[in-house]
């Protein structure tokens, strides 16, 4: 697979390590009343879809940036690549 890095252009997927579902950006509030249940769901449950999947890849052998890759898990086709930083910022997660 080739991942089209927003800053570096097309790179071999072997340069990256894979973390998982991009919902991992949405860490729950540890002070919430329901924190125990929220963190269980955050840490352990996955929607694991057959089809379009947004996921976190880390450019470990490159510029060490985190990316959100939108990929079809049935065909391995990549339709969109964003900087995870930008995704997190639009969700109010990062400064």
């Amino acid at each position: 697979m080739i991942i089209n890095h927003p800053l570096l252009g097309p790179r071999d997927a072997a340069e990256f390590t894979y973390l998982g579902d991009a919902s991992l950006i949405n860490r729950p509030d540890w002070q919430s009343e329901t924190a125990a249940q929220d963190f269980y769901e955050y840490g352990y449950l996955r929607s694991n879809p057959a089809g379009i999947h947004r996921e976190l890849w880390f450019h470990e052998a490159g510029d060490r940036s985190w990316l959100v890759v939108t990929r079809n898990t049935v065909t391995h086709e990549i339709s969109n690549v964003e900087m995870a930083r930008d995704v997190a910022r639009t969700q109010g997660r990062s400064k």
């Binding site: 352990y44 449950l45 996955r46 929607s47 694991n48 879809p49 057959a50």
Partner: peptide, 18 residues
């Protein structure tokens, strides 16, 4: 490997990835 796909039809999320 199709567990998540099947169980989503019963509105279940599983602790697994395929």
């Amino acid at each position: 490997g199709s567990s998540s796909r099947l169980m989503s039809k019963a509105d279940m999320q599983l602790p697994m990835e395929s």
